[in-house]
Design a protein around this nucleic acid. Structure first.
Length: 192
DNA sequence: ACCGGGATGTTCT
DNA sequence: GAACATCCCGGTG
């Protein structure tokens, strides 16, 4: 089990997204395997929060790679991204689903509505709730683990042929298929 | 199983 | 004032 180093993130978000599949997202020992991701930003992406330039909310996206960009959505939910690319490119990878592996009891307790284990982390806001990621974690360093949040490699390779589809929940930027997932995985935010 | 709508508040126009 | 990288619940079949 090795924490992923900074240079991994210093690339195009689409490349990073595919390679993040089957890595581990962990907070204080709880978490699981990344099974669904989406890439944002980079070259002129109208679906990205960074599209209209830096603001107070998206500042972390314009910062150094290897940090966590956390945003609040629909008045109730947090979602988290791994920042990649170099500063002005403002790329990021949204983690959309985990296969839960560690700290199951604690994740169940944090997600009162999650009856079945497949409800724990099968969505971008669900997994943040299960792991306890929220606004205060925006900007956390995934390489040093300064707030207990890391992405690690346990030797499981990314799928040779990942599933691919348009991104979910957008009104702009739905034409580009920048969502990837582990084929056949039951813990997706929605089927393939 | 599938579908429709409400919650809830920050961000940006 | 509208949009929003979502989730949950209660309807119906």
């Amino acid at each position: 089990m090795r924490v992923i180093e900074r240079d991994f993130y210093r690339r195009d978000p689409r490349t990073v997204a595919v390679e993040l599949l089957n890595k581990l997202l962990l907070r204080d020992g709880r978490g699981g395997r990344i099974v669904e991701v989406e890439a944002y930003g980079g070259s002129n992406d109208p679906g990205s929060h960074a599209y209209r330039g830096p603001t107070e909310r998206n500042a972390t996206m314009f910062g150094p790679p290897g940090h966590l960009y956390v945003y609040f959505i629909y008045g109730t939910h947090w979602c988290c991204n791994a920042v990649c690319s170099e500063g002005t490119e403002a790329g990021a990878v949204l983690v959309r689903a985990l296969a839960p592996l560690y700290g199951l009891d604690e994740m169940r307790a944090r997600r009162l509505r999650g009856r079945r284990d497949r409800d724990l982390c099968s969505g971008p806001a669900k997994l943040c709730q299960a792991l306890g990621i929220e606004g205060a974690d925006d900007g956390a360093d995934l390489v040093t683990g300064d707030r207990g949040i890391v992405i690690a490699d346990d030797g499981t390779p990314s799928p040779a042929v990942p599933g691919q589809s348009p991104r979910i929940g957008l009104s702009a930027g739905i034409t580009t298929p920048w969502r990837w997932y582990v084929p056949g995985e039951p813990n997706l935010s929605r089927p393939g």
